[in-house]
């Protein structure tokens, strides 16, 4: 259990998908103009990462691995299967949410299709493979990674809401400032780098 908490903390703060690896930047920059929308997207990312990570783990280990069902190395199909799982999960989640909780759908719905092409999701799955996590570790990594991404997008959205009222040089307005801010937040997060999660 301690190991899992370690991985959660590590993936949420120290190896933050958004601010340490800069994954999922497209939607991160596009949907962080207000805290409200950022909140919705952040939740959706936690949700989808939490679901796809274990599924992709099962696929990678039991279907594609040399010790899997087919007993051959099928890892060359990894990209296709991973992205298909992500796309179909996103679609499934969209349908389920729409049916059973229209209010959640109204706040989350428009972000779900965006998530398919959010590299944090696919990146998370690929990192999971290269780090050779086991099943429960993969789940912890998925949830932690999602949570870290959620924190990061909320933080930048809050800053962007405020910075709207500042006197920024015209060419830097909007996008330029967003880049600069993300860079600085990334540096701040690098300060967490040496932390030993086992100390928690």
């Amino acid at each position: 259990m301690g190991d899992l908490i370690n991985i959660f903390i590590k993936s949420a703060f120290i190896e933050n998908l958004a601010l340490a690896y800069f994954l999922g930047m497209c939607s991160y920059l596009a949907v962080s103009k207000t805290v409200k929308t950022a909140f919705g997207l952040g939740l959706a990312v936690i949700f989808v990462l939490g679901i796809t990570m274990p599924i992709n783990w099962v696929i990678n280990t039991w279907l594609l691995g040399e010790n899997g069902v087919f007993q051959t190395d099928l890892t060359f199909l990894r990209f296709i299967l991973f992205i298909a799982v992500i796309a179909s999960m996103v679609q499934l989640v969209e349908m389920v949410v729409e049916k059973y909780s229209p209010s959640l759908y109204n706040s989350l719905g428009i972000f779900l299709p965006l998530i398919t092409v959010n590299c944090a999701i696919l990146g998370g799955s690929l990192f999971m493979v290269s780090k050779e996590y086991n099943f429960s570790e993969a789940v912890a990594f998925g949830l932690g990674g999602g949570f870290g991404w959620f924190l990061a997008i909320i933080a930048i959205a809050a800053i962007r809401e405020k910075i709207k009222y500042s006197d920024v040089p015209a060419p830097m307005r909007g996008l330029g400032m967003a880049f600069l801010l993300t860079g600085m937040m990334g540096m701040a997060f690098m300060g967490l780098m040496g932390i030993d999660p086992a100390a928690f």
Binding site: A20, Y21, F22, M172, G176, M177, F179, L180, T182, G183, M184, G186, M187, M190
Partner: peptide, 9 residues
Amino acid sequence: FPSAMFVIA
């Protein structure tokens, strides 16, 4: 990594 952000900015 963060420097890439600054350079792009």
